[in-house]
Simulated assay, not measured.
Amino acid sequence: MKDLTDLQARRERLVLDHFADETKQDFDAVLGTFPHPHYELIPSGEVHDGIADVRQYYIDTRRAFPDQRHEIIQLRHADDSVIVEFWLLGTHRGPLKGIPPTGNSFRCRMNAFFIFEGDRLVCERVYFDTLTMLRQLLVGVPAAHVGALVGSLLGQPSPAHAPEAATA
Rank of each mutant, 00 (worst) to 15 (best):
V82R: 11
P66M: 11
Y57F: 14
W87R: 08
F65G: 05
E85L: 13
F86I: 01
T61E: 12
D60A: 12
D60L: 06
F65H: 05
Q74H: 13
D80T: 12
Q68F: 09
T61C: 05
E85K: 15
L89I: 02
L89V: 00
D60F: 01
I72Y: 02
L88A: 14
Q56S: 09
I59Q: 10
F65E: 06
V84E: 00
D53G: 03
L75T: 13
F65S: 02
D79E: 14
I59D: 13
E71G: 01
I59P: 01
L89R: 08
L89Y: 01
D67A: 13
D60Y: 00
W87Q: 09
R69Y: 00
D53E: 15
I73F: 10
A78Y: 06
V54R: 06
R69S: 12
H92W: 00
H70P: 00
G94Q: 08
E71H: 02
S81W: 03
V82S: 02
A78P: 07
L88N: 06
F86T: 06
L75R: 15
Q74M: 07
D67W: 01
D79K: 13
G94K: 08
W87D: 02
P66W: 15
P66K: 08
L88F: 04
Q74E: 15
W87K: 03
R55E: 12
H77M: 05
T91K: 09
Y57N: 10
F65N: 10
R93D: 11
G90S: 07
I59C: 02
P66I: 14
Q68S: 08
E85F: 05
Q68P: 01
V84N: 06
W87T: 00
R63S: 11
P95K: 14
E85Q: 10
Q56H: 10
G94R: 03
L89W: 00
H92R: 06
Y57R: 10
R93Y: 01
I59H: 12
D60H: 04
D60M: 09
V82W: 09
T61W: 03
L89F: 01
P95S: 08
D80Q: 12
V84Y: 05
F86V: 01
H77C: 09
D80R: 15
W87V: 00
I59F: 08
D80A: 07
R69F: 00
H70N: 12
R55W: 04
R62Y: 07
W87L: 12
Q68Y: 14
F65A: 05
V54S: 11
I73M: 13
H70S: 11
D79F: 01
L96P: 03
R76T: 14
A78D: 13
I83M: 11
D67F: 04
R63G: 00
A78F: 02
S81Q: 10
D79T: 08
R63D: 08
R55M: 04
T61F: 13
H77E: 13
H92G: 03
R62H: 11
F86L: 08
